[in-house]
C-alpha cells in the first residue's frame, strides 16, 4: 500500500522557489491501479519520484508498504519497481544480461536471479529474444524488456511514469496487459499519464493533479457522479477551465 499525507515539495529555480506539490494526500491499495492524471508540469512525475525515494518531500508523510520514505529509503527501494516512459533501452547487451545487471543492482543472489529471469521471460513471453542484442529488438520487445527490468526484484509496488508515451499501439498493449495482470496479482500499481482515455480504461482509482494540487481523488464512478458527467475527459476539462488553465 502507498499512502501520502499532506506532501509538499518545492524546487529552487532562477526565479526563486517553485512550489510544485501542495498538500498532496492519497492512498493506493494492493490490487488497485491508481492513475495520476494531469498535464505536463502538473507534478505527476515529482509525486512518483518521491514515492520511489528519488526525491524527498519537504513536508508531509509518505508511507510505502508500511515503510517511512525519507527514513527507510533502501528498504522501500526493495519494494518498488520504477519504469519511466522516456527510458529507451539500447546498447549491445541482451535482455538476459540487462536483467542480470539489474538483479545484481538489487543484490539478488545468483541462483535466484537466474530463476527470476527465466520466470519473467516466460511471463512476458521473452524467450524468443532473451539472448538477442537489445539494439536489434522491436519497440514491443524493448518495452517488455523495460518492464522486466523494473520488476526483476518482484516489487510489491509498481510505479510507471508515463509508460506509454512515445510507444506504438502494439507496445502500448504490452504495458496495458501487464498492468492489468499486476493488479490481479495483488500488486499496488501507480501510474501517471496525460492520456485520459487510457486512464479511464485502466485505472481503478484516479487522482487529478493540476498545478501541484490534487483536486480530485476517488474511483472513476465517484468522480463521474460528483461532476455529473459521462466521461473523465469532460471532468478534466471542466476542472481545468475552473482553474483558468483553458478558456
Amino acid at each position: 500500500m502507498v499512502e501520502l499525507i499532506n506532501v509538499n515539495k518545492s524546487f529552487k529555480t532562477r526565479k526563486g522557489m517553485k512550489h510544485v506539490l501542495k498538500d498532496i494526500s492519497f492512498t493506493a491499495e494492493p490490487g488497485e491501479i491508481y492513475g495520476l492524471l494531469g498535464p505536463n508540469g502538473a507534478g505527476k512525475t515529482t509525486t512518483l519520484r518521491i514515492i520511489a525515494t528519488l526525491l524527498k518531500a519537504d513536508s508531509g508523510e509518505v508511507w510505502v508498504d508500511g515503510l517511512n520514505a525519507g527514513v527507510e529509503d533502501r528498504k522501500i527501494r526493495d519494494k518498488v519497481g520504477l519504469l519511466t516512459g522516456d527510458m529507451k533501452l539500447s546498447g549491445n547487451l541482451s535482455p538476459r544480461e540487462m536483467l542480470k545487471f539489474f538483479a545484481d543492482l538489487n543484490h539478488i543472489p545468483k541462483e535466484m536471479s537466474k530463476r527470476r529471469i527465466e520466470e519473467l521471460s516466460e511471463y512476458l513471453d521473452m524467450n524468443e529474444f532473451l539472448d538477442r542484442s537489445i539494439a536489434k529488438l522491436s519497440a514491443g520487445m524493448k518495452q517488455k524488456t523495460s518492464i522486466a527490468v523494473s520488476i526483476v526484484h518482484d516489487p510489491e509496488i509498481i510505479i510507471f511514469d508515463e509508460p506509454t508515451s512515445s510507444l506504438d499501439v502494439l507496445a502500448v498493449k504490452v504495458v496495458v496487459d501487464f498492468l492489468h495482470d499486476a493488479s490481479k496479482r495483488g500488486k499496488t500499481v501507480l501510474l501517471s499519464t496525460h492520456v485520459l482515455s487510457e486512464a479511464e480504461k485502466l485505472c481503478t482509482k484516479i487522482g487529478i493533479i493540476l498545478e501541484g494540487e490534487l483536486i480530485m481523488n476517488g474511483t472513476k464512478d465517484e468522480i463521474l457522479t460528483t461532476y455529473e458527467s459521462s466521461s473523465l475527459e469532460d471532468v478534466f476539462f471542466a476542472l481545468a477551465k475552473e482553474r483558468g488553465l483553458i478558456i
Binding site: 519520484r49 520511489a52 525515494t53 528519488l54 533502501r74 527501494r77 526493495d78 518498488v80 519497481g81 520504477l82 519504469l83 519511466t84 516512459g85 522516456d86 527510458m87 529507451k88 533501452l89 539500447s90 539489474f102 543492482l105 538489487n106 543484490h107 527490468v149 523494473s150 526484484h153
Partner: peptide, 13 residues
C-alpha cells in the same frame, strides 16, 4: 538521455 538513470538509482546499490 536514454532515461535509464532514474531506474538505476532505485535499487539496493
Amino acid at each position: 538521455e536514454r532515461g535509464s538513470l532514474a531506474v538505476i538509482l532505485v535499487n539496493q546499490v
